[in-house]
């Protein structure tokens, strides 16, 4: 049982053979359906708000806010985690997934206080998305400025 480079390589092959793979096709279908439903709900809200006479810009903001609220509420009730287990990327990619990734650490780290716990850890999952999202938008903005 020497952990030589050759044995390590052989072992990686053994691990690969012994480890079951996730059901990618089944998961993709589930993600497609659930993600689609979430987007349909968003579209439904948008149409409804338009009916009420809101402008295009305002409907976008209100629709996002409603979806974010629903997902945060579902996270608090312990439902979004269950949805995520079923849907995978289908519930992570829409804006509701972003809401869940902020709300769940907020709940988890509340016990360590509102500043050192909740405050410091709230973006532990969403932080990279926010940072690199903003960074990308700045870069794209600069490119756009020069190409315009």
């Amino acid at each position: 049982m020497e952990s030589s480079a050759k044995n390590k390589e052989l072992y990686q092959d053994m691990v690969k053979k012994a480890s079951p793979n996730s059901h990618i096709f089944k998961n993709c279908i589930k993600a497609f359906v659930v993600g689609g439903i979430i987007c349909c709900i968003g579209q439904f809200i948008t149409n409804y708000l338009k009916e009420l006479g809101l402008t295009q810009n305002d409907t976008g903001i209100y629709t996002s806010s409603v979806l974010i609220f629903i997902a945060a509420l579902m996270t608090g009730l312990g439902l979004y985690g269950k949805l995520g287990k079923f849907a995978g990327a289908g519930s992570i990619v829409p804006i509701t997934g972003f809401s869940n990734s902020v709300a769940s650490p907020a709940i988890e780290f509340k016990k360590e206080g509102f500043v050192t716990g909740l405050g410091a850890k709230i973006f532990i999952v969403a932080g990279p998305v926010i940072l690199y999202g903003i960074l990308t938008s700045v870069i794209v903005g600069i490119i756009y400025y020069f190409l315009k």
Partner: peptide, 17 residues
């Protein structure tokens, strides 16, 4: 889970391994 992985309420899928 809190110390080693993700917050409990985060909607992720656990691998079969």
């Amino acid at each position: 889970e809190k110390q080693f992985r993700f917050p409990l309420g985060l909607g992720t899928q656990r691998p079969l391994t």
